[in-house]
Amino acid sequence: MSALLEVEDITKTFSGITALDNVSLNVDSGERVGLIGPNGAGKTTLFNCVLGQLNPDEGAVRLGGEELVQKSVSRRVKAGIGRTFQRIELFSDTSVREHLLIAERVRNGTGSFLKDLTGRGRPRKEEIERCDYVLELLGLRDLATEPIEKLSLGKGRLVEVGRALMTEPSLLLLDEPSSGLDRDETSALAETLRSVQAEAGFAILLVEHDVELVVSFTERCYVLDFGTVISKGSTAEVMADPVVRKAYLGTAPVEESQP
């Protein structure tokens, strides 16, 4: 069986800086894979290249064997990729349920414009129910009508996850979901993610600085440093790899960051 996501020899440079240098990576269906590395290693850039918010200079990205590189972001989303953001990105001036509802209706909404004009574009009962179902899964049901500006950062991250789930992804890209959360919130998040994943069966590619979370959550893991993969394998092996310890855990403390 071929992998769900195949990233093959991707290179991306920004005016002189090589953010990604010949990076290859695979994720199988239903798998949980970690992607770690120091700040500025190129993790977020890799996500952007996978979803098409950036175009790689070279290399290929395939989902279920289908070539993605020439496709627009929205096509890739329809092909089954969802993501969350390191710098949280929510729609201002909307409620929690509306967030999910927008995603749900975009997913359903083919030929929406004419439907809208004739008044058949309003949210349907099934759509709202589906949103509420996902809210329930994420434990956000009580907050459904809250404006998102009132949420804590942790809940905000859950809303992002919920929004991504509404697109029914086969692969979910999570960019540092635990940043800004405390220990309890983090373990609650991991718990929720695990149960939702068991339910829906998508694969997860997780970028994370919280080593504990990576160890407990992922099966395999890749390590990026200065845009190259310096180690890969089962999470336990990788964590024991001296190269990784040196580049990542050893010399530079994790918290120090450039903005």
Partner: peptide, 18 residues
Amino acid sequence: GAQLKALRGSETAAESIG
């Protein structure tokens, strides 16, 4: 309208849901 509202709120995120 929902799409426009999303775009108004965050273009990056709007793109990420298709």
